[in-house]
Amino acid sequence: MSAGGFLAMGGYAAYVWPAFGLTLAVMLWNVHAARRAHERAREDALRRLPDREPGA
């Protein structure tokens, strides 16, 4: 199959590629959002810490 034929998706390119592209975008966003949430939680936890002494 030629590259052009592959991209044309038998005439369904306008539906197939947006479906795959959207899925990819949402999955990448989920990875990013989870990492950011973890990073922020770490920073917030670090900010909370100095108020308390261990065992206090």
């Binding site: 989870a34 990492r35 770490r42 936890a45 909370r48 002494e53 206090a56």
Partner: peptide
């Protein structure tokens, strides 16, 4: 993929909720 993203989010949630300063200090 869901499992991987979920574990990261649960980690964030655990940090957010944890009030045990000694553990947080050691972990962070």
């Amino acid at each position: 993929f869901f499992g991987a993203v979920l574990t990261r989010r649960v980690q964030a949630e655990v940090l957010r909720r944890e009030r045990n300063a000694a553990w947080l200090r050691a972990e962070l």
